[in-house]
Nucleic acid binder design. Structure first.
Lengths: 247, 247
DNA sequence: CGATTCGTTGACATGCTTCAAACTTCGTGG
DNA sequence: CCACGAAGTTTGAAGCATGTCAACGAATCG
């Protein structure tokens, strides 16, 4: 089933470039660098681990197609999802002092990745670019913290969908109609909510006319309201959802 | 890693070295670098901002003495605390693509800082060290996410105190008896809890004999139980707290 | 076609927030 | 030195959002 490596780089960077420049390629100024990247291309099938917490970290990755879930496991075996990565996204930067993975990553569907060796990058890339890459990850982490600390279930789900919509759209896909590659369980583990709450909230949003859901299929019908719910207006958001509900 | 970096600025690096090597100095291999660092020392008084979100970011900092709160402000003006930094901690790494601050930082008390110019570091320091610095910050962020997503109020407060205790201890201060430099409000904003919940939980811990609290003074009396409560055992932790409460 | 996983829905319990009020500490100015 | 107000902390009561438990339906897989 493994697709053979194809020869030239431009093809491989096409997808990522559509989002206005794959962060990864911005690190690679030379043609040789790109070629290295291409040779390291890799295909993962649904459920394959890209890496696991604790493993040696010698590279990070850029998603070419498909999607990836990053997570860690608590002492009890509970899972905490840290993020979902779509085409163009960089992941796998989080390594501890001894260059070990601080989280695990698994393919949510058949997924193609570009691999960036750490050694190569830290030697040839100037620090600024690395800092920016890290910054992107920190930005995401901060958003998640803010969501978990200050938003109620409605706000979290709305933010989650709104974010997905924007990311899909900026990548040339539809921002209104897409397929969720992650389960309700995954969403719950990401947002700090019980599966039941995720399900209920989606149903309620549907009843309010904000969106249409059928299993993994999502169609957003009212981006404005969704975006409003996503905003940090816990009280106001609540009231508006209630209003829509009864309408 | 090596301990031989004390030659030029022994006075200034002494405090940080007590924790087994200030992360900042690990970045600076040359004596000139250290001298630059030392010259950039800065004092902030309680309530002074070290930087604000959106400002140009040309440096990051290491706490020499005192403590710092990092936070961001939501659209409504609500505050979300991202972390507290104690002597030896690095902060101010989080900048966006255009080198602007992604968060604000304010001194919680009279505080002395070492300043590390970005420009200098990104030019002379190899990428690996930068990645490690970022990793430390990400590690903290992940812990916070995990706390917010999976722990109840008891677990959060316990984790918060346990963490502080460990950090103080590893810096040569008492890990059992210390002064909180942040208000209940700050703690609540950090842990995603209402001020009242913070206060109530502390009181309950005190009644359980786990600790002694008086305003900002904290004395931990039962590290083991505190640590157990801090673990990700929401249900179990609850029961045990209840048991102690009634005992 | 059973077995398993995933998603939905309902009923109930509860932990936390919110609202309200009292108290303490601290700063400021009279 | 005291008066006074502002800010921080604590405590109580009540309401509600979310978790938990339980059962069912739907899709997927071997």
């Amino acid at each position: 089933m493994s697709k053979e490596h194809i020869s030239i780089a431009p093809n491989y960077c096409h997808v990522c470039d559509t989002r206005g420049g794959c962060l990864g390629t911005q690190l690679l100024d030379s043609p040789e660098a790109r070629q290295q990247l291409v040779q390291a291309k890799k295909i993962n099938r649904k459920g394959d681990h890209i890496f696991r917490e604790g493993e040696d970290a010698d590279a990070f990755f850029v998603v070419r197609s498909g999607s990836v879930k990053s997570y860690l496991v608590t002492e009890e075996g509970d899972e905490q999802v840290l993020g979902f990565y779509l085409p163009g996204d960089v992941f796998g930067m989080d390594t501890d002092d001894s260059e070990a993975r601080m989280s695990s990553a698994i393919a949510l569907e058949t997924t193609s990745l570009c691999r960036f060796p750490h050694s190569y990058l830290t030697e040839t890339t100037d620090g600024n670019k690395l800092l920016k890459l890290s910054a992107e990850q920190m930005q995401r982490d901060h958003s998640l913290v803010l969501m978990l600390a200050r938003k109620d279930a409605d706000g979290r789900i709305a933010t989650f969908l709104d974010d997905l919509a924007h990311r899909y759209q900026s990548r040339g896909y539809s921002g209104s109609s897409f397929l969720l590659s992650m389960s309700r369980q995954d969403i719950g583990c990401y947002l700090g909510l019980a599966v039941e709450t995720v399900s209920r909230t989606l149903t309620r949003f549907q009843d309010s006319g904000i969106l249409q859901v059928n299993r993994r299929e999502v169609e957003i019908r009212d981006h404005d309201t969704l975006s409003e719910l996503a905003g940090n207006h816990p009280e106001k958001a609540n009231k508006e959802a209630g209003g829509l509900e009864s309408a």
